[in-house]
Computed example of a mutant assay.
Amino acid sequence: MIVPPTGVRVWLANGHTDMRRGMNGLALQVQEALQRDPHAGDLYVFRGRRGDLVKILWHDGLGMSLYAKRLERGRFLWPSPADGCVAISASQLGYMLDGIDWRNPQRTWRPEMAG
């Protein structure tokens, strides 16, 4: 993924989204359902029903970009629909895209000794 500038806000859309939507359909969803401006420079992340696919919508000031990532195994961790639109940091987004629990990242293995 192209690295967004520092300080950019990342929003997770609640629930699941129809992954057949393209950038225009997702931008309309940001505007109508989330009540936010899709052209403000924030990243909007949408998850499919199965949970193994996310799409990220981003307007960088020059144009709209749409990124997609599918996990080969496992699912993306997602907040409950009752939480609404959740804001996370760019580093938490990086954890999420790597399949790591972004809410509480923990190192899974650390070497005991060298050699």
Results as ranks from 00 to 15, higher is better:
Val30Trp: 00
Pro81Trp: 10
Asp42Gly: 12
Leu57Trp: 01
Val86Cys: 11
Val86Thr: 10
Ala87Pro: 06
Met64Leu: 15
Arg107Pro: 02
Ile88Leu: 04
Asp60His: 05
Arg70Pro: 04
Tyr67Gly: 00
Gln31Lys: 13
Met23Pro: 04
Val10Trp: 00
Leu62Ala: 13
Asp37Ser: 09
Arg9Trp: 08
Asp98Lys: 13
Gly22Phe: 09
Ala40Asp: 15
Gly7Cys: 09
Leu43Thr: 00
Ala40Ser: 15
Lys55Val: 01
Thr17Trp: 03
Trp109Glu: 12
Val45His: 01
Leu57Ala: 04
Phe46Ile: 01
Leu97His: 03
Gly63Ser: 11
Leu34Val: 05
Leu57His: 02
Arg103Pro: 07
Leu43Asn: 03
Asp18Ala: 07
Leu26Gly: 01
Gly15Ile: 08
Gly51Tyr: 02
Asp60Lys: 03
His39Val: 06
Asn14Gln: 15
Gly115Thr: 07
Ile88Gln: 04
Met1Cys: 05
Arg9His: 09
Gly51Phe: 05
Gly63His: 12
Phe46Leu: 01
Arg103Ile: 00
Arg9Cys: 07
Thr17Ala: 09
Val8Leu: 06
Glu32Tyr: 05
Pro111Asp: 12
Asp83Glu: 15
His59Ile: 05
Thr6Leu: 13
Val45Gln: 02
Thr17Val: 06
Val10Asn: 01
Arg49Gln: 14
Ala27Asn: 07
Asp83Lys: 12
Leu57Gly: 00
Glu112Phe: 01
Met113Arg: 15
Thr6Glu: 07
Leu62Thr: 13
Ala87Phe: 00
Met96Lys: 02
Trp102Phe: 14
Met113Thr: 06
Leu97Asn: 05
Ala87Asn: 09
Arg73Ser: 14
Glu112Pro: 00
Gln92Arg: 12
Leu53Asn: 05
Gly63Tyr: 12
Arg9Ser: 15
Thr108Gln: 13
Gln31Ser: 14
Trp102Leu: 06
Pro81Lys: 13
Gly63Met: 10
Pro38Asp: 11
Leu66Ile: 06
Gly115Cys: 07
Met23Cys: 08
Ala68Phe: 04
Leu66His: 03
Ser65Leu: 11
Val30Lys: 02
Ala40Asn: 13
Val3Phe: 07
Ile2Phe: 09
Glu72Phe: 00
Asp52Lys: 05
Arg36Pro: 00
Gly63Lys: 06
Ile2Gly: 06
Leu93Met: 08
His59Asp: 08
Trp78Arg: 01
Ala87His: 10
Met23Phe: 14
Pro105Lys: 03
Gly51Asn: 08
Ala90Lys: 07
Asn14Ile: 00
Val30Ser: 02
Ser89Thr: 15
Asp18Gly: 05
Met113Gln: 12
Gly7Lys: 08
Pro105Val: 09
His16Gly: 01
Arg110His: 11
Gly61His: 09
Ala13Glu: 01
Gly74Met: 11
Arg107Gly: 09
Leu12Lys: 01
Met1Gln: 13
Val86Lys: 08
Ala68Ser: 14
Gly25Cys: 02
Pro4Gln: 08
Asp52Phe: 04
Ala13Thr: 03
Gly94Arg: 11
Leu43Glu: 01
Asp101Lys: 03
Lys55Asn: 07
Ala13Phe: 04
Leu28Ala: 14
Val54Gln: 03
Gly51Thr: 11
Asp42Met: 03
Ile56Gln: 04
Val3Asn: 08
Val30Ile: 14
